[in-house]
Design a protein around this nucleic acid. Structure first.
Lengths: 161, 161
DNA sequence: CAAGTCGGTTGCTTGATGCAACCAAGTGTG
DNA sequence: CACACTTGGTTGCATCAAGCAACCGACTTG
């Protein structure tokens, strides 16, 4: 996106999009949710330009959506984790994922299935377990490959720690 | 956004963002949901450049998210409506709205409240009525100004027809 | 009959994105 | 001990999208 702000718009959707509405931002959040924590992993799995990934991560850290932690001092090496604010984007991602599944389907079926870790039930577009009925959050669910997944699909079975 | 596609990404979130992830697209959908149906209304309420609005609407019509109907033959005048596919973006918008409210709050409280038309209950971030517990869709809810709304807030009390 | 309305389009400038090359500080390999 | 490789970026450049203002065509209103 060009300017990331929507000046004068008194709207919480606009406020949200000012922060995560830039191209790639939500996909980076999703990628970290799927346990791609390192710069190179994200770059490769998303196919994003390195300079753009760098600037997006910087912004996401500024906005307290992502946390950057060193796992090695020398040479300096970093991993990126979602904060609570970042994890709270899960319902929006689930809603978008379901919309994408419904309207850009693969012939074989959903690319991914979201399941409730505790009971194994599938998760609805509202992030609710269809078996036990609980309203779930990011940590309660995991992703498993669905019938429409490509074989070389990135990082299957990921979970949030 | 520059290129609107995310080539090689086997992910329904990416598929969704290819369609509605460009800057302004979701806000245009939201604007039509709030009964801004005409070019000039949307342009003014969003503060978007006219050429950009024009190209976004064209794309949204192509993608069958928005429908363009003439309400006058001569001079040709048009109104834009959401299709079912467009209305199905409601859960994602609600999720983003709630996230925006939580993390970019006004001191006074939410800018907007979403209420269930039928029973008047407030609607949760999952699009569920907090009074009667029903899972709602776009047509079941309406928006009313909340305590954090600016006085000149656009089009209050809008509903979906 | 001049000014306003509506729904755009055109041209120009600015700025974001994509791509490839480069860099720095290590580590592993013969 | 030299040389390639890994990781996590930065830099420079070309291209494409967004913002802005002006214009336009077909009416309608005063």
């Amino acid at each position: 996106m060009l300017r990331r702000d929507y000046p004068g718009l008194d709207c919480s959707v606009a406020k949200a999009l000012e922060v995560i509405g830039e191209r790639w931002s939500l996909l980076i959040v999703r990628s970290i949710m799927h346990s791609n924590r390192r710069f190179g992993e994200m770059q490769e799995s998303l196919g994003i330009a390195r300079n753009v990934l760098s600037s997006r991560l910087e912004r996401l850290v500024e906005e307290d959506i992502v946390e950057r932690r060193a796992y090695s001092e020398s040479p300096p090496r970093y991993e990126y984790f979602l904060t609570e604010k970042g994890l709270d984007l899960w319902p929006a991602l689930i809603a978008l994922l379901n919309w994408g599944d419904r309207y850009s389907p693969t012939p074989e079926g959903p690319r991914r299935l979201i399941v409730h870790k505790e009971c194994g039930g599938t998760v609805s577009d509202r992030g609710i377990c269809e078996r036990c009925g609980k309203v779930l959050h990011a940590r309660d669910a995991k992703q498993v490959p669905g019938p429409g997944a490509k074989v070389e699909a990135e990082h299957t079975g990921a979970t949030i720690d």
